[in-house]
Amino acid sequence: MKLRIQHDTIYRYRRSVTLQAHRLVLVPRGTHELRVLTQSLKLAPEAKVEWAQDVFGNLIATATFAATTDELSISAGIMVEQCAPTWPVFSIAPGAHSYPFRYSDNEIADLGALLQPQRVDEEVRLDTWVRTFVRASPTDTLSLLIDLNAGVAAAATYRTRDEEGTQTPLATLSLASGSCRDLAALFIEAARRLGFGARAVSGYLYDPDTPCDAPGSTHAWAEVYLPLAGWIAFDPTHRRIGSANLIPVAVGRANDQIMPISGGYIGEADDRADMQVRVSVQAI
Rank of each mutant, 00 (worst) to 15 (best):
N149I: 04
H97Q: 12
D140K: 04
P100Q: 05
Y99M: 06
T86Y: 04
F90S: 02
A154K: 14
P85W: 08
T157I: 02
Y103D: 02
I60E: 09
E163V: 00
A154I: 10
S137E: 15
A156S: 06
V55H: 07
F65I: 03
G178D: 02
A155C: 00
D110H: 14
R102D: 14
A113L: 15
G112R: 07
G77R: 15
E163Y: 03
N106K: 08
Q118M: 15
D121R: 08
V80G: 06
I108W: 02
W129H: 04
G95R: 10
T157R: 15
S177R: 14
S177I: 00
S73L: 15
A176G: 02
F56L: 01
R119T: 14
T157M: 12
T157L: 11
E163D: 13
A113F: 09
L175K: 10
E107H: 09
I60A: 03
R135Q: 14
L170Y: 02
T132I: 07
L59K: 12
T86F: 11
S98E: 15
D105G: 00
N58K: 06
L170W: 08
A155D: 10
T64S: 13
T160P: 01
E123K: 14
T128G: 09
R159L: 04
P138R: 06
Y99E: 02
S179C: 04
N149T: 08
A66F: 06
S73A: 14
R125A: 13
R161S: 09
Y103E: 05
A150W: 06
I92R: 03
E107F: 04
T64G: 01
S91F: 11
A156M: 02
L144I: 08
S174C: 09
A96W: 09
G77N: 14
D110V: 07
W87A: 12
